[in-house]
Every structure is written in structure tokens, then in C-alpha cells.
Design a protein around this nucleic acid. Structure first.
Lengths: 346, 346
DNA sequence: CTGAAAGCGCTAACAT
DNA sequence: ATGTTAGCGCTTTCAG
């Protein structure tokens, strides 16, 4: 019962070494391709290890080398529960690279206290670094992580004045381009259906919107920017409010294809036609199953597949952990502006 | 450079003990609520630990206690890349319980060689157990995992003759009920849009379909069951083929709301009306953003939110790991049959 | 080229 | 009630 369990695959270094008649260090070295080990013994050890299905105990190895060879992804659990999110796509990208680089990925959701999760991850040394997402304009996590000494990469930027690595969508340029496009087509009454104001990306997009006006000697009313959540329903409601108000807008810039879908629906509900009576443009994250191309008419959009950002996030963090870079890495993803049928001259 | 780094939060047992003037074991015991430690010292230690932000090094602890306090979720990477999947909902459920129970969740995707991942997880002892998904009719992973001695729970059943724990949808009864419902409404030309044949759930559903006929002294043609993938597009194509063929079906049973959506679309494409000219029923996993209620007309379906299965999977595995159960745990989720407008008497 | 031995930070017998 | 000590399985100086 509590005696020795027989365990067939439980080969460890010690028994492997004993079986081969060499010391543990020799086996360990051979398996790690240590230069001092001659090819003959290396092969002998390797094949014995393969035969036994030996794999170093990850916990022991971690403890010895002082690294977990694992990273954590810290996120609000909610992002796995709500349907309209690009989170899964980011996760897919992260997942791919983490696997390629032979790291493990620890999923660390939180309900409300992200800080606690971060502290725990840092002090328990369960991971070598973390990816955090959706930074606020002025994000307190940066200071915390810096003081904790836990390596991290942010998906998105923040205005905090401290060095940190990030991968971000090019919100500034994409929104300036989208807005500029509409302006150049002669639109003036444009509404921006933007994200919630405390997120840095939404702030950046709002600024870009105004910048596009200013660059043409124009100016947008402040009320032209709506800071709302990233859902179709919100897009719908927001657009409807404007379409039914006085001074009907002739165009909308949307933060996501989700919102754009809602805007399309609102336009239809008013008996108007997208790309004819009202123009619509958006930023497209290339989220699974949410394609700008399949809307009717196809949606003009700036495009950056967000899965790619996930891949870069993981690669950047692992490089950071492995000391392959010293200075903060700052990546702003390039985008394509793809013209489709949802825009027409005003 | 390679000298001692100063690390503010790097409190370990030793320094904590030194600082308190007691031994490491006393601190360890106090922190674990060992009965022999008097309340006074326990509190003294606890507050010192809190102040220092002490958290045991997870790797060291794991090594010492021989448990990782972590579980792995092994799945084809693809399930994170394709839009039409219930995987994310299962993951959300797993994630919630794992967090509640203070375990870590290791995401272990694979490209093609699941076996390799399983072996690695087992031999490196990175996790205490795994959750595997989508069992085949005769699934080789069961034998492998049993021989590996790695605790596991399967999402779904398989016909393999060996003891294993699982959580499964009640495919047998739900499909028998759905088919029976149509039969009792007088339908005879019924097509089952089912999953791919090698998956056990699809095989079970096919059998249930035939059983419903047999129970009424009827029999279905073998061609009435279509083994296809779980997507809207497939549902569409499959339904279209039947609707345009001779002997048009009067009803469809679908494996998922995804497929049902496609079937709805095919029916409309033929100028027919769902719930009037053709009846449709399905099993509904309660996937995020895919609600049977929002179809027009609302879809009659058996309902079991699959997130719940995720929760149970995690709970079952952790119980298993902690020795809270000895015999295999077999859970078949209950379901509700919800009648909505997509069905009418033939 | 290879072995012995220390140590990663913790837990848990085994003292006392 | 608390301290001492022996590992957990690995990597890695340090010797030789």
C-alpha cells in the first residue's frame, strides 16, 4: 500500500547512471552535449536514455538551474467567457511559439485581483516571466512588475514613464489612416466607435482621429468619439443613436469588426445602405471567424492579424528571459489598409 | 555582473527563519498550520511572512512533496485556431476550477504527435495529471496513459476496455430524444448531420438515432446519417445536398448549433421555411456566442452547457490526484430538452 | 575525460 | 513545541 510502488517509466538520472556504470554527472553531461564527453559515450548514454524514455524531472531541473522554463499568461477570466474577444487568437499565437521554443505555458486567469496573481507568480517563481494584456493609459502593473523583478512583456503600450517591452497594434497610424481616408472622400460628419476610455489603445485612437482632422485643417467635435465596449451590440446601439439624432453622420470609424458589424446592423435598421448612404471603416484584428470580407458590403479596414502579435509576445518574452536582449523591445505591428465596398465618396 | 544580484522580494525560508530566530521547520510548520505550533508563534511567523511577501518556491516545494500541484490540458493546437469549436468554453470551465483549487494549468498543445506530449508530460513530471479530449471510438491514449501511470480524465468516452475516468455529454440519450421527438411529430424522412465517424461521440449519436427508430418499430436508412465535420459550412452543404435530392427530408437532427445554423441557411436557400416546411433539432453545448435561441425560428435543442463539463473535468482530475477517489469517476452530464419553434408536425 | 560532492529551497521524518 | 537532518532529482563547480 504505502510500500514502493512499481513505476515502469520512472527512470531517473541515478538509475540510468547505475545501469550504465558511470556517474550521474557523466550522464547529465552527455545528454546536454557537453564538449568534454566523447562521441562514443555520448551515444551510448543517449541510446540508453532513449530506451528508458528518460526525461529530466522538470521540477528538479528547474530548481537546479534556477529557471522554470515556463511563462505565464495573466488575464481576466472573463476574456475566456465572453464571445466577442480577440483573446483566443492572441493565445493561439503565444501557444505556438511557447511550444516551439520548448517552454511551458501557464494559464493564470484572475477574477478581480490581478496584482495578487502577479505577486504570487513572482514570489513562488513558478514562471520565468509573464505576458500581461490590455494596458490602461496609466498602468500600475508596470511599476509593480519592475519592482518585483519579474520579466514581462505587455500586449499594448501605456504612458507610464518606465522602460518595458511591448508588442502593440499600430493604433495611432491605423486610426489616422482610416479617419483620413473618410475625410479625403469628403466625409465630415464622422463618428468614431472607439473602445473604453481607460484603455490606452482607445485613447491613442481617439487622438489619432482628431489628428487626422487637424492635418487637414479641420476639427472634429469631441462628441464624435464614443468610448464604448468592443461588442456588436454596443456598435449597434451607438450607431443607432447617432443615425437617429440630428445631423446624421455620413461615416463611422470602428475599433473592431465586432463593432462594425453592429454599425452595419444599425444602418440597415434605419433603412440605409452601407457604402452608399453611410460609409464604414474599422480596424481588423483578423479574429477567427470574424472576417471583414464577409460583411455585406465587404468592410474597408486596416488589417493586422493579432495572432501574429501573440507569437511576437511570446518570442519577445522568451528572448528577454534568456538574456538575448538587454534593452526593452518595442514592436509596433505593421498593418495593411484594405479598400473594400463599405466606403464611398460623400 | 555574475556576483550576487540584489533581489528585494526574494525572501526564502532560510532568511525568514533567521530573521525570526527560529528554524526553517518551525516557519514551514507555522505557515502550514501544523497543529503542534502554538497560535502565538504561528501568528508571529505569519505576519513576518506576509510582510516579506513570502511564498514558497513552487519548484522546491514540488520537488519536496513530489507533486507539481499543476495539471495539463493536452489538445490539438488547431482547436485554438479554428473559429467553430467548443474548446474555449471547456477551457474556461477548467480554468475556473483549477484556479479555485489552487492548482496551475499548463496548456499543452500539439501539432500532430499527441503521444509525444503525453510521454513528455509524464516522464518530466511537469504535471500531476492531464485532461485529454475528443476520444476516438477505440482510443489508444487510454492504454498509453495507463501504462505511463499518469492520472488523467477524458472529456468523452471511448469503447476501450480499461478503467478510466471521464466526463461526457449524454450523447446517447440526447440523440435518442431528439430523433424520437421528430418521429413522434410524424417525421420519417429525417437526416442526421453528425460528427466525424472516428470520434466516439459521433458513433454513439448514430446508434442513438437508429435506436429511436427501432423503438418505434421503424428503421432508418444508413444513408440518413451523415458523418461530417462540426461546422456551419458543412451543415449547409450536407443539408443542401439532401434538400435538392430526391425524397426531400422533412427534418434534420444536428450535432451542434454550428451545423444547425448551416442547415437553416440551406433550407432558406431552397426557398423553404424552418419549422414549417422542414423541422430542425440539435444538441446545444451552450457555446459562447452561439445561442440556439437567437436563430430564427429559435432552435429546439437538448442543452448542456459545456463549460460545466470543463469544470467537472478539472474537479475530477484534481480529486483523483489528491486521492479523493479510488475508482474511476464516470460522469454523464444531464441535459434539458427545450422545445422552440424549429419543429412542427410533419 | 570523469567522478565526488555541494546545493537549488523546501518538506517531513526523526529527534528531543 | 521546536530543532536537526535527510532527502526530492537535477546541474555544476571542483578535483583529479
Amino acid at each position: 500500500m504505502s510500500g514502493k510502488r512499481l513505476r515502469k517509466s520512472a527512470t531517473d538520472l541515478k538509475s540510468l547512471a547505475a545501469q550504465l556504470g558511470v556517474s550521474q554527472s557523466t550522464v547529465s553531461r552527455a545528454l546536454h552535449g557537453h564538449p568534454a564527453i566523447p562521441e562514443t559515450t555520448r551515444r551510448r548514454v543517449q541510446s540508453a536514455a532513449d530506451a528508458a524514455g528518460y526525461r529530466p524531472n522538470a521540477r528538479a531541473r528547474s530548481l537546479a538551474i534556477g529557471k522554470a522554463e515556463a511563462i505565464g499568461l495573466v488575464f481576466p477570466l472573463e476574456r475566456l467567457q465572453l464571445p466577442e474577444t480577440n483573446f483566443v487568437d492572441v493565445l493561439a499565437g503565444i501557444s505556438t511559439v511557447v511550444t516551439e521554443r520548448n517552454y511551458s505555458l501557464l494559464l493564470s486567469p484572475f477574477m478581480d485581483d490581478e496584482t495578487a496573481v502577479l505577486r504570487k507568480l513572482a514570489s513562488s517563481k513558478a514562471v520565468d516571466g509573464v505576458i500581461i494584456t490590455r494596458p490602461l493609459v496609466d498602468d500600475p502593473r508596470i511599476a509593480l512588475l519592475n519592482s518585483l523583478g519579474l520579466p514581462y512583456v505587455v500586449h499594448g503600450r501605456t504612458e507610464v514613464d518606465a522602460p518595458f517591452s511591448y508588442v502593440d497594434t499600430d493604433n495611432d497610424n491605423s486610426f489616422e489612416r482610416l479617419t483620413g481616408l473618410l475625410l479625403d472622400y469628403g466625409h465630415r460628419r464622422i463618428v468614431a466607435v472607439n473602445g473604453l476610455a481607460h484603455f490606452r489603445y482607445a485613447a491613442a485612437r481617439a487622438a489619432a482621429f482628431h489628428r487626422a482632422f487637424a492635418a487637414r485643417g479641420l476639427s472634429a467635435r469631441a462628441e464624435a468619439v464614443e468610448f464604448v465596449s468592443m461588442t456588436e451590440q454596443t456598435g449597434y446601439e451607438t450607431a443607432l443613436r447617432h443615425l437617429r439624432g440630428a445631423n446624421r453622420p455620413t461615416a463611422f470609424v470602428c475599433g473592431s469588426v465586432f463593432q462594425a458589424r453592429g454599425v452595419y446592423r444599425a444602418i440597415a435598421a434605419c433603412g440605409l445602405a452601407v457604402g452608399k448612404d453611410v460609409s464604414v471603416v474599422a480596424h481588423d484584428d483578423g479574429v477567427r471567424g470574424v472576417t471583414a470580407l464577409e460583411l455585406m458590403p465587404p468592410l474597408t479596414a486596416t488589417y493586422t492579424p493579432i495572432r501574429k502579435s501573440g507569437e511576437l509576445l511570446a518570442a519577445t518574452l522568451i528572448d528577454l528571459i534568456e538574456g538575448k536582449r538587454n534593452s526593452p523591445s518595442r514592436t509596433i505591428m505593421p498593418f495593411d489598409l484594405i479598400l473594400r465596398g463599405s466606403v464611398q465618396v460623400a
